[in-house]
Simulated assay, not measured.
Amino acid sequence: MTRSSFLLGAIAALAISSQPASADSIPGLRGHDHTGITVPDVKAATAFFTDVIGCSHAMSFGPFSDDKGTFMQDVVNVNPRAVIDEISMVRCGYGSNIELFQYEAPDQAKTLPKNSDIGGHHIALYVDDIDKAAAYLKEKDVKTLQGPIPIKEGPAAGQSILYFFTPWGQQMELISYPRGMAYEKDAKTLLWMTTEPMK
């Protein structure tokens, strides 16, 4: 990326971020700060995100618990005797952050939801070259699903996707659309700042 294209991208990003939210919104809404996920071993999860994915560890804190009261239930809607052993925050490139929790709770479920389940979810990471990123994951023995799959029709045309799994089974995704997506031609809202506009 040239210095001028970087500056143009930064100016465009500032213009978008400084636009006021719609009339019906949370006052002062700026954007998505982080996604939190509960993991079986926060130190191992932090190592995966930093050593394999390439995120940066920002901070860790905890533990949190309430031996007699209902603080945990009142604050995060978990069993009152639940314990957060540790929270670790990682930053992945230019996107929002990922918050990793390690919990102990009497009623803790240990089965990850599927994408089709209510509450099912995944975290998607944007990459510049999905083929190189896919090859890297395979070199690191990261389990991937079919793909990368290029999307050629509809508003998402121009993107390629590949789903993969963390060592503990959390579903994640790589996504790339370096030339933009079809919807961007007439869009008022862009999902990601790419270096080249859709042609």
Rank of each mutant, 00 (worst) to 15 (best):
P40Y: 07
P40N: 12
P40L: 11
D41H: 11
V42W: 04
K43H: 13
K43W: 05
K43S: 10
K43R: 12
A45Y: 03
A45K: 00
T46E: 13
T46R: 11
F48E: 01
F49I: 11
F49K: 05
T50H: 04
T50S: 04
D51M: 01
D51Y: 02
D51C: 05
I53Q: 05
I53G: 02
I53M: 09
I53F: 06
I53W: 04
G54V: 07
G54M: 14
C55A: 09
C55S: 07
C55M: 06
S56H: 05
H57A: 12
M59K: 15
S60K: 01
G62F: 06
P63N: 07
F64R: 10
F64I: 10
F64E: 06
D66P: 06
D66R: 09
D67Y: 02
D67W: 07
D67M: 05
G69M: 03
F71E: 00
F71L: 10
M72D: 03
Q73M: 00
Q73P: 01
Q73I: 00
D74Q: 13
V75Q: 07
V75E: 03
V75N: 09
N77V: 02
V78I: 15
N79F: 15
N79L: 14
R81E: 13
R81C: 02
V83Q: 04
I84W: 06
I84K: 14
